[in-house]
Design a binder for these strands. Structure first.
Lengths: 180, 180
DNA sequence: CTCATTTATTATCTTTTGTTAACGAGTATT
DNA sequence: AATACTCGTTAACAAAAGATAATAAATGAG
């Protein structure tokens, strides 16, 4: 990859720092930005019909996130993205990204590489874990895949991400610790 | 979208017909093709450590599928793709697709539109269904989203896709029918 | 059509999960 | 320091799911 394009990419990136507890993208926002987490922790969640907050995903250092509903479908965001720690992100918006991509095939590669790949890879891994793994195994895989996240967030968020209740996750943890 | 590009796209598409029960992509193949189902039914599956076939996904008319592991990561396919009916597909490979995309921004749009979008959309919908829905609701949503599939495949495949056992799916069906 | 195979259902039993509520530990607030 | 909150754990019970096996229904092959 050409160094010139790296510079061009960097010139087109913004950076921003959020305090713990700030909202980066609110539900119903139509924000096209693509974010890269330099430092910090972000969770996406929604409020279900019972009024409960359900955490959909957690993002930490070196992860990319964005409002998929707007980026892909031009619809308002289904999730709220909130920082759980003071967080520094780099960001650009999809338009810039695409302009760079179309004018330059190296950028297309970056686009595909960063964008499609990481997000699709995570998505497929996650579906895998639901189809092939029991909740217990799923938790253990999450521990392995995201060791930098689990110790920094409440278990109830993890429970949501794994598709189980917090009470059930607590029991899973107990079962696992008994085995060791 | 320009009609010229449509012609160009069509010239770069192959078409092929498979008998019921044929393998389109075998596990460990490194096939880059992107397939569009004109008519028929395809399932992807793998054989787990217990020797059981686990169905990962089902595809029918107007759906796109491909070997994500090779396309995105240049790794051998994790799944086998097998036809469950006589099936006609259109296909191209990613290289052709990307050549078209880079030389022409309309193609890029098609690329993004067809490729990223449909696959990512399906992936996210599916994760949603695991995080937010009970197995019973998940089954009902699958019925709604893929009415053209359920009546054409054995329930045990659907069970795998939904992440439950065939026995459990049978009970779910009974519970639902009792309520009506 | 008949027989063999596959698939779906049902039953039984065990395990896990959901739900709700209670409790205690730890934080935060005032 | 006292109070209120949040969070994780535990308990108790009901509901659901997994495992296994038996049976019924459907499908396919000859």
């Amino acid at each position: 990859m050409n160094i010139k394009f790296l510079y061009k990419l960097l010139r087109n990136l913004g950076s921003k720092t959020f305090e713990k507890g700030e909202i980066i993208i609110d539900e119903a926002d139509k924000i096209n930005n693509v974010f890269y987490i330099r430092k910090g922790l972000v969770r996406s969640y929604l409020i279900n019909e019972k009024g409960e907050e359900i955490t959909f995903q957690l993002f930490a250092e070196r992860q990319i996130f964005g409002n998929v509903h707007t980026i892909l479908f031009n619809e308002p965001s289904k999730f709220t993205f909130e920082t759980l720690e003071n967080t520094k992100v780099y960001f650009t918006d999809l338009k810039t990204f695409q302009d760079l991509s179309t004018s330059n095939s190296d950028f297309l590669k970056i686009d595909n590489a960063i964008f499609g790949r990481q997000i699709l890879k995570q998505a497929f891994q996650r579906i895998d874990s639901f189809v092939f793994l029991s909740p217990e195994k799923r938790y253990q895989q999450y521990l392995k895949d995201y060791p930098n996240i689990i110790s920094r967030v409440p278990d109830k968020y993890i429970a949501n991400v794994l598709g189980v209740t917090p009470v059930s996750l607590s029991r899973i943890r107990k079962r696992i610790s008994k085995k060791n």
